[in-house]
């Protein structure tokens, strides 16, 4: 490229850069931005309405699973790699976090960090062989590994080391104060979402999406597919690990059940309900799921059954999830209310 032609593009780019500074401001003026802010303010105010540990607990569960679902959505939506074993990272981090808190007396946040990093290590461990291949291998390999983890942790032979069907119990909660616990989870959720969305919009996010759209083309553009897929996989494993560690603390223990395909299914249901590649759709899906699950709290199998049907219908008839259509409806109503 000659220097002359380079200077030609400069003006346009300046415009773009100053544009990204006011990006947040513009975003907060859009309907979607306003709605997000209203929802966040609403979530901040919930503890003013109730300090009941049980009710706040429903919100906390939904927040934890928002992070978990978003970690899956990041991988599937931005890089096109579908994981059916997201439970591996969720579960292993749950175990490691619990172990460090219970037996090594580390503070919860240090244990959570270690747990999530072990999740990342597991991501590397299965990503390296599985990513040598294209297509759906990764997803199935993760699912198989999840099952193996489930049986291994359940196994009586390994009980002295892995805790058997009881797992690890009696770990203290993050805080005795329910409201404080609530806000800590809220901060985790918002931070995780901001980071994931920011990565999606970054240059690395562009590379991820190029791999999703056309992996051969990305390779012809000089992109090391394995490296970037692995990075995406590790980021996803990290946030799944955060969710798993928080979940273990919230439930005051962890057992082999967290490795079941069911937990991977949770992530997929919530993310796909909201809409793949939206990140924030995961939150919508997660709150929807846990509020509905509350209705069937007597029969947990029934709620999974119903959500399996809902997911089949959503994927079949609204491939892109319900976030967009819901937003459009709400905007219509909003405009109507404002008399536009």
């Amino acid at each position: 490229m000659s220097a002359k032609s380079l200077s030609k593009g400069k003006g346009r780019v300046k415009k773009k850069l100053s544009g990204s500074k006011s990006y947040l401001l513009n975003w907060s003026k859009t309907f979607r931005g306003r709605l997000t802010i209203i929802c966040l303010i609403g979530l901040c105010l919930i503890p003013l309405l109730t300090q009941n540990r049980y009710y706040l607990g429903i919100f906390i569960t939904a927040m934890i699973f928002s992070i978990f679902a978003a970690s899956w959505d990041f991988l599937a939506g931005f890089t096109g790699q579908v994981s059916f074993g997201q439970a591996i990272f969720f579960g292993i981090s749950g175990y490691i976090t619990s172990y460090f808190i219970r037996y090594l007396y580390l503070p919860w946040w240090a244990s959570l960090l270690i747990g999530s990093l072990v999740g990342v290590a597991f991501g590397l461990l299965i990503g390296i062989p599985a990513l040598r291949l294209k297509g759906p291998y990764l997803g199935l390999a993760t699912m198989v590994l999840g099952l193996i983890m489930f049986y291994t942790f359940l196994n009586v032979k390994f009980e002295p080391w892995l805790g058997g069907s009881e797992g690890i119990s009696k770990i203290p909660q993050i805080s005795r104060n329910a409201v404080e616990t609530y806000y800590i989870h809220l901060i985790f959720m918002i931070t995780s979402f901001l980071i994931l969305i920011w990565i999606g919009k970054s240059k690395m996010g562009t590379v991820f999406k190029s791999i999703r759209d056309d992996d051969i083309g990305a390779e012809a553009s000089g992109i090391n597919l394995t490296k970037y897929k692995l990075i995406a996989f590790m980021i996803s494993a990290f946030f799944a690990g955060i969710a798993g560690g928080l979940f273990a603390m919230h439930n005051r223990g962890v057992n082999p059940g967290v490795f079941q395909p069911l937990y991977s299914f949770y992530a997929i249901v919530m993310a796909s309900l909201g809409g793949i590649a939206t990140i924030s759709g995961s939150a919508l899906g997660s709150y929807f799921f846990w509020f509905a699950a509350e209705l069937f709290s007597e029969w947990p199998d029934v709620s999974v059954f119903i959500f399996a049907i809902i997911l089949i219908l959503v994927i079949r008839f609204a491939e892109h999830g319900i976030l967009k259509p819901v937003l459009e409806r709400l905007k219509d109503i909003w405009d109507l209310v404002l008399g536009k």
Binding site: K203, T206, K209, S210, D213, G217, A220, S221
Partner: peptide, 16 residues
């Protein structure tokens, strides 16, 4: 022809 369908033209080039 191949392209990154959902990226802008600028981003299509940015990848390289």
């Amino acid at each position: 022809v191949r392209s990154f369908k959902l990226l802008t033209l600028l981003d299509n080039i940015s990848v390289s």
